[in-house]
């Protein structure tokens, strides 16, 4: 700071010798102490700054997951005095539990019919948004509208729209000549209804992610194709789609991790109390079944076993996606 002052004092003035010499007079001890403090600051501050994340993740992320595996080896009832060790009994029961397999099939089914159309529509929507629209930001905000809405509120609203007797969707279907559909009792129609909510919520969001990737594609690539006489459709298939691969895989991986844990939509889809996932569990998902076993039947050991099996399934599917990513991304390189 002192050196700065001498500089600003004026060009003509003879620069005073730096004050640092005075500091030396105080003695090497004090300087050493201060020096050591700075050294400690440099050495340990980074660890201090990143510590909150690691501590919190260990406490509320990693430890609970590991402890879930431990709990799953016990007959652990919420509030019970004794929690006897049962080994892998919970797992053998689970693998023979038809309701669990039903939930697993429902989860995968809803996941598939929500992810595939969603990605396709998101890409097409992004292509439309990538044209020279007037008022771009307005359109982008418009497609993003569903993303900000509260999931609980929207699920309740959709549950009403898909109502069997008075629901608007059935009214419209009847008016245009189709029959009314039992969106709740029929297994596959209920999956489509729930997937519709997921798609409605996430398509616009994913379209914006894809749009960002489209805009990152260098323009001269298109210009070269245009000079070669490639049509718009041809350009889209031969240039845009291959260049989007990494982003598409990213979108698919994130919707895998989220989609396999789907819970709110099936819980709130049908308002009739006491059922979770439909009268015959026709749209009960794994996380919903886990919630029911753990927090309604209070069977924490069993619910933990379920959580771990689902965890492994997610890891396996995410792993397959990852390998796929690497292969597609490297083969997609021009």
């Amino acid at each position: 700071m002192t050196t700065e002052l001498t500089v600003t004092r004026g060009r003509g003035a003879e620069p005073r010798p730096p004050r640092r010499d005075d500091n030396d007079d105080i003695g090497p001890e004090k300087l050493g102490w201060r020096h050591r403090l700075t050294h400690l600051d440099v050495k340990f501050s980074p660890y201090l700054y990143i510590a909150p994340f690691f501590v919190l993740f260990a406490l509320v992320g990693l430890f609970p997951l590991v402890y879930t595996a431990y709990v799953s080896l016990f007959d652990w009832e919420l509030g019970a005095d004794e929690t006897p060790f049962v080994g892998i009994d919970n797992y053998t029961t689970l693998l023979a539990d038809s309701q669990f397999w039903n939930a697993m099939v429902n989860t995968l089914s809803i996941f598939a019919i929500s992810t595939i159309p969603q990605v396709i529509i998101a890409v097409l929507l992004a292509a439309l948004l990538n044209t020279a629209l007037r008022g771009r930001t307005g359109w982008r905000m418009g497609v993003l509208l569903p993303y900000v809405a509260s999931l609980v509120a929207l699920t309740i609203i959709f549950g009403d729209l898909f109502g069997v007797q008075y629901g608007t969707i059935n009214d419209v279907l009847e008016a245009i000549g189709f029959g009314r559909i039992d969106w709740q009792a029929d297994r596959w129609w209920s999956h489509i209804a729930i997937a519709t909510m997921v798609n409605w919520r996430w398509t616009g969001y994913n379209a914006l992610i894809v749009l960002a990737a489209m805009q990152a594609i260098p323009r001269d690539v298109y210009e070269a194709a245009w000079v070669d006489g490639a049509s718009k459709v041809r350009q889209f298939i031969s240039i845009t789609l291959p260049m989007l691969r990494p982003t598409l895989i990213f979108v698919i991986v994130t919707s895998t991790i989220g989609g396999l844990q789907i819970f709110t939509e099936p819980l709130l889809f049908s308002p009739s109390a006491g059922t979770s996932g439909g009268a015959t569990n026709q749209y009960q998902t794994v996380v919903l079944y886990m919630y029911e076993s753990g927090f309604r039947s209070l069977n924490l050991g069993y619910a933990s076993a379920m959580a771990w099996v689902l965890f492994l399934v997610i890891i396996v599917i995410a792993g397959i996606n990852f390998l796929l990513t690497r292969r597609l991304a490297s083969s997609g390189e021009a």
């Binding site: 980074p46 992320g61 996380v287």
Partner: peptide, 25 residues
């Protein structure tokens, strides 16, 4: 620094929601 950052990114893929039972306990 490098490995720790990789660890942070890897945790993005961990479905921590499945740990709710011990967390509740």
């Amino acid at each position: 620094r490098g490995p720790l950052m990789v660890f942070v990114v890897a945790t993005l893929a961990v479905p921590t929601q499945l740990g709710v039972i011990p967390l509740y306990m």
